[in-house]
Nucleic acid binder design. Structure first.
Lengths: 193, 193, 193, 193
DNA sequence: AATGAATGAGTTTTCATTCAT
DNA sequence: GATGAATGAAAACTCATTCAT
């Protein structure tokens, strides 16, 4: 058992454990002890590497947002037309990695965290700005004056579907979510034509 | 002289204090002490009337959902055509009483609560079912096969706008929220025509 | 068992327990648990009444300084000449209540506390100022220009005897301490005459 | 290339770091981590060399007492009369190296340590015995029966001035401290004459 | 010779909840 | 009807200490 270079391994397993525990608990009422136990380490070690529970949560939030950004980048890389770009954003939002229950639950709870933590608020607002500008980039070429309206509407709908994924008795499948947003997009484009 | 008939007064002021405190804190991390203090009573009294913190939160949630239902009923009473009925539902969602920051924040946090509390989950699912059936009732007369798609899309968009009201750096105004949903509705109807 | 008006009782028994525990331990490394246990209450109650460990210590320090001030006042009340006034101050410093091991130990540790706590520093500096001005008040009538020197010398000697009471292998008795200070005072007066 | 002969270097830099940290903190509430960091080594190394935190503190205390003893020896070497010997002891106590704030603070805190640690108590009592016998050696030739009284009085005053150096809002200068003790000594000698 | 990794044991603090009055 | 008094249980965080390398 190697004893050196453990830090990055521990950090990432603690981040994974945090997301899993928040997903399991359905809230941020998760103790450092639960997280540490799932990661197979002591609570002292978790504090040693992250300094505080708050920082553990923030690192987990950063991780989730990084995964999301990577998914968006991957999808955008394959899009060549404006429409494809918009659809790429939407697909990325509902890609399996981002739309799986534990992740969505963690996501929503980190939203709540943003109400009380400036750094979390900053991260969240970066996500919101990027989502909007990504959607707008494609929509501006397709819709004249209504681009911002549709961008805001799509962004809101995506967030709303996330909530339902996390909370509804019968959560929508990723496919269903895609259909709903797609139908909104199609209708808006047709009307504008 | 012993005060008589205090119970309903105490209960409602504790419920109001709960919503205000959750709104202020931005989370459910609110102590019974804070709630009781805002209501001007002792924590012991809060327990006396509600039995537990969980029940206090549930009563607050019921209160919020009741206000919402009343707003919907009020709006529906003035609607005569199917389109007006759909628009009534939307308007109710963004009516001042329901869309004010503290209320929205409380609402979202009660969503989170629903992840851990069966009774909260039941209340939430009643709201979701009613919203959907109210929207469907109007949309079925306007759209043939796409009624459920548009109903689900509108419901998601409404929830998404709530999130943004609670969390966005620059939350949408009620008016803006109305415009977005309205534009989605209009586009869907036009396409179907 | 009366259930009302407990606060002052609890506060003073916690203060007494704090002094006793610091005396026993010989340092400020005393847990709230130990203090609470000696006072016969839970740690939660100690926090309930004092807010924090720091405040518990400060209250204990205030108590010790108050006792000291009372002793000084009592002695001064019986003094009529300048010399008697100076001797009154000295006697008060070595009065049984102030010179008993636990008290002296607590005293010294609160001195150390003053290095890190502004409020403790303030209390300590009040004590030092008062001691000096009390001594000076008497000495000015007895010694022309040397009054401040003797006042400072006596004050330092008193503090030094306290240290030895707290730390020496064979601590001086109060009587011995009195003799030493008295001899210094007498010699200074004779020389000046 | 493995460093050789590092042990004495590490030990002395850890001792210096200990005194500096205790001086900075104003108390013994200093972690091994802080000491090690200041010394530029790992906490593990500090334990490797000293075995425990307690031993680190004791080594620092021994260091301080050694410096003091050296200063006394240096001063005594230049004294030829009994009076000069007594004055030499006093001067040594307030020599810059021994009277600088960090040192005095460390000194006092080690006093407190002596309450809980037999070895520290032993070291402290050696210091007290030596101080007393050094003073007595000179005073016996100058004062008949009062030698012990003046020795004890001077010793107490010296310790008291140390306390004030460590804790007073306006600490006495070394010069002022010298004046006070000198004035006591002079008055005692004159009276006896 | 030196350290990164790791933890057990403990400490302060918080809080929902109970109960006697 | 109402509350001051009280606490058990738990949680975040700290730190001296150990060990494998």
């Amino acid at each position: 058992m190697p004893k050196i270079g453990m830090e990055p391994l521990r950090r990432s397993s603690l981040v994974a454990a945090t997301i899993a525990e928040v997903g399991r608990a359905g809230s941020l009422d998760v103790t450092v002890g639960q997280i540490a136990k799932r990661a197979g380490v002591s609570t002292a070690l978790a504090h040693h590497y992250f300094g505080s529970k708050e920082q553990i949560f923030l690192s987990a939030m950063r991780h989730i947002l990084r995964l999301y950004a990577e998914e968006v980048a991957r999808e955008l890389a394959q899009a060549s037309t404006p429409l494809q770009r918009v659809e790429a954003i939407i697909r990325a939002s509902f890609a399996p990695a981002n739309f799986e229950p534990a992740t969505v639950t963690a996501w929503l709870n980190f939203y709540v965290q943003a109400r009380n933590n400036p750094e979390a608020a900053r991260l969240l607002s970066i996500y919101q700005r990027r989502l909007r500008s990504n959607l707008l980039a494609g929509l501006r070429a397709l819709l004249a004056s209504d681009a911002t309206t549709v961008a805001d509407g799509l962004a809101a709908m995506i967030d709303g579907l996330y909530i339902r994924q996390a909370l509804a008795a019968h959560p929508p499948s990723a496919e269903h979510a895609l259909n709903l947003t797609q139908s909104y997009l199609t209708a808006s484009l047709k009307v504008a034509a």
